[in-house]
Every structure is written in structure tokens, then in C-alpha cells.
Amino acid sequence: MPQLNPNPWFMILVISWLTLLLILFPKITSFTLFSNPEQKLLSMKTKSWTWPWS
């Protein structure tokens, strides 16, 4: 049964992971977010809610 032979499939697995880690991962992580949530939290000013019974 050839599907139990790990020789060709293991190399395909290793090459695909190396491609992902060495080429694609740095390209994906180089993108910056368009809306930085930390800046949004700092710039938000909250108003206290005025309750009608207080």
C-alpha cells in the first residue's frame, strides 16, 4: 500500500512548512492594521450617563 510509505509525503510536508514559515509568514506579518484598536481606545472619551431619577 503506497499511502503508508511516508517517504514522499514527509518531504512535501517539510517543504510546505518551510515555505510557509520562511516566505509567507514574514509577508503576512509585515502588514499593519488600518485601524489600530489601542489608539481608538485611547482617543475615546466617555460621558457619564445622567439618570433621570438621581
Rank of each mutant, 00 (worst) to 15 (best):
Q39L: 12
F10G: 07
N36H: 04
S43I: 01
P6M: 06
T29R: 09
T50Y: 00
F34T: 11
M44E: 08
K40S: 11
W17T: 14
P6A: 09
L13I: 11
L41H: 04
T32A: 04
I12G: 08
P8D: 03
T50W: 00
F25E: 06
I12N: 08
F10W: 09
F25D: 05
K40P: 00
F31D: 02
Q3K: 13
I15E: 12
L21K: 09
W53C: 02
M11W: 08
F10I: 11
M1N: 15
P8E: 06
P26H: 01
L41S: 06
P52A: 04
M1S: 15
L41E: 08
S35E: 05
S48I: 01
M1E: 15
L22Q: 03
P8S: 03
L24C: 05
I15D: 12
S54A: 00
S43E: 09
I12A: 13
P52H: 00
S48K: 09
T46N: 03
P6D: 05
Q39R: 13
I28L: 12
Q3R: 13
L4K: 11
T29H: 04
F34H: 08
P26K: 01
L4F: 15
F25P: 00
S48M: 02
K27Q: 12
P37W: 00
N36Y: 01
W51T: 00
F34D: 10
S16Y: 06
P26V: 03
T29M: 10
F25V: 12
I15H: 07
V14L: 15
T46M: 03
L33A: 09
W49M: 02
S30C: 02
N36E: 07
L33Q: 07
W9A: 13
P2W: 10
L24Q: 08
W49P: 00
I23C: 07
K27L: 15
L13M: 09
Q39V: 12
S43K: 10
L21P: 00
V14C: 08
K40G: 07
W9T: 14
L33R: 10
T29S: 11
Q3P: 10
P2T: 12
N7M: 12
W49I: 08
I23N: 03
V14F: 12
L33V: 10
L20S: 08
N36S: 06
Q3F: 15
T50V: 05
T19W: 13
W17V: 15
F34M: 09
N7E: 13
I12F: 10
P2D: 13
N7S: 12
P52Q: 00
M1I: 15
I12V: 14
W9R: 11
T29Y: 03
L24E: 06
W53A: 04
N7K: 14
F25T: 12
P8W: 00
M1C: 13
P6E: 06
L33Y: 04
K27Y: 11
W17P: 02
E38K: 15
T29P: 00
L42T: 09
P37R: 02
K40Q: 09
L22C: 13
F31Y: 11
I15G: 09
S48V: 03
P8T: 02
P52I: 02
T19D: 11
L21D: 06
L42M: 05
S16E: 11
L20C: 06
N7Y: 12
L42S: 08
F25Y: 13
S48D: 04
N7F: 11
